[in-house]
Design a protein around this nucleic acid. Sequence first.
DNA 1: AAGTGGTCTAGACCACTTT
DNA 2: AAGTGGTCTAGACCACTTC
Lengths: 269, 269
Amino acid sequence: MNPVPSNPPNPAATAGEAVSATPGAPVVGAAAPTFSPLYQQIKALITQSLQSGEWKPGELIPSEVELANRFKVSQGTVRKAIDELAAENLVMRRQGKGTFVSTHHEARAHFRFLRLMPDEGVPHYPESKIIEVRRMRAPADVARLLDLKSGDAVIFVKRVQSFSLVPTIVEELWLPGSTFKGLTAERLVEYKGPMYGLFESEFGTHMIRASEKLRAVCADSAAAELLKVAPGTPLLSAERTSFTYGDKPVELRRGLYLTSDHHYQSELN
Amino acid sequence: MNPVPSNPPNPAATAGEAVSATPGAPVVGAAAPTFSPLYQQIKALITQSLQSGEWKPGELIPSEVELANRFKVSQGTVRKAIDELAAENLVMRRQGKGTFVSTHHEARAHFRFLRLMPDEGVPHYPESKIIEVRRMRAPADVARLLDLKSGDAVIFVKRVQSFSLVPTIVEELWLPGSTFKGLTAERLVEYKGPMYGLFESEFGTHMIRASEKLRAVCADSAAAELLKVAPGTPLLSAERTSFTYGDKPVELRRGLYLTSDHHYQSELN
DNA sequence: AAGTGGTCTAGACCACTTT
DNA sequence: AAGTGGTCTAGACCACTTC
């Protein structure tokens, strides 16, 4: 279970699946040895504990000193592992308090995946209306993107979001049926707070990353009606795939954004 | 010139503009002391050297050991400063060789600020055609975003980019006239390579960050003609402000993207 | 062989939070 | 006072590149 370091201060080493950094070392039966630094191995172990739910979103994880003792490495090595996890937003460090598992139940998390911002001077009172929730069989394209088999059960959700009473977003979601068993319109409507918070608390699925493809499209009659605009109005289309631990896709989302009073903010570094 | 650390291993300290971390320390005449960690001060000093051109894009900067000696701090502190600069893409580390100043003359830099990607299976042969270059007085909105006074000289550029012979992007740029004195259509046309490479080499202006606002709009007649599409075709509008060192805005760009065979890729973390 | 960045350790002290 | 993360140092060795 331990990474088993064989470093200078560590004597002899306690055998086991030793990690040698020597190129010519006898790596029995490994075609591609895949060496990795100790701190990366520690990072992977911590990630596993996050994924397994040993430490749940919002909870405190063990202190650096404690983790260093557990893994038999120095505090500096644990620190570097946690530094990367913090950079990836998997955990949050707070001086004097400890390191917490990230959660979507937080003010700062609400806008993490929503890049649509009100233009200057436009107020921001969000509202969500569920239009439809139903179970269906995954079409080929949805199945492919969610890593399912064509025809597997998926849950389909359609909703409209308004800002300051102006309908601005119409969204369609596809979720793997097996993961979100029991998700109904009632539960979505009743739930207060962000949808990713519900996924996290009620279904144990924590979204940690997403990838979007943006396009400009014309509003079809359905979207136009929901957004109360003329058919043909240009809309910003965002096709999002969201991932949980291990880069496993667990949500497909197609949003159509009305961008007359809002814009999609993108920072390039 | 030195940060003058007064840390345990350093004896007595060599006087000067000492940086104390003691809250009650006598900070003469400083209303808001603005303490900062040593490595942040080192980072700022390195950034100054980058900005002043002491080390130019593509060049090697002094080694960690050398910088540690120069600043009279440990290598670990220099390392942490450079780590952050590398994370911000200001420098690039290469094991065994050294640390290099980032440059826009590189394959990997070409797509740093261009998020428009060909859809799957669509080939990618870029081509650029300059439509217009002229000097003008900055309109109020351009002046505001470029931190200039209304009426200051700016250079206006209009160009069309094609991918695999399909016109896909029409762009308008505004650049501060003082910074880009002598920029002409000829130089833009003659120059091989990315435009930011030209700005870097010929005008000493290195873009390090940009911020875009995206919207869906209808093609006006001018854009429609250049992109060879029907007026009213939905286009993705990207309004970009680019910054150089010190968060100084040095470019304003409005791009209109045809997204029938391309998409704007956005990664959410 | 020498020089560079990359990893790892050990120990000190600081800043912040809670008890 | 005790515990947490944050900073800083010093020294060792490793991996990679060049001479």
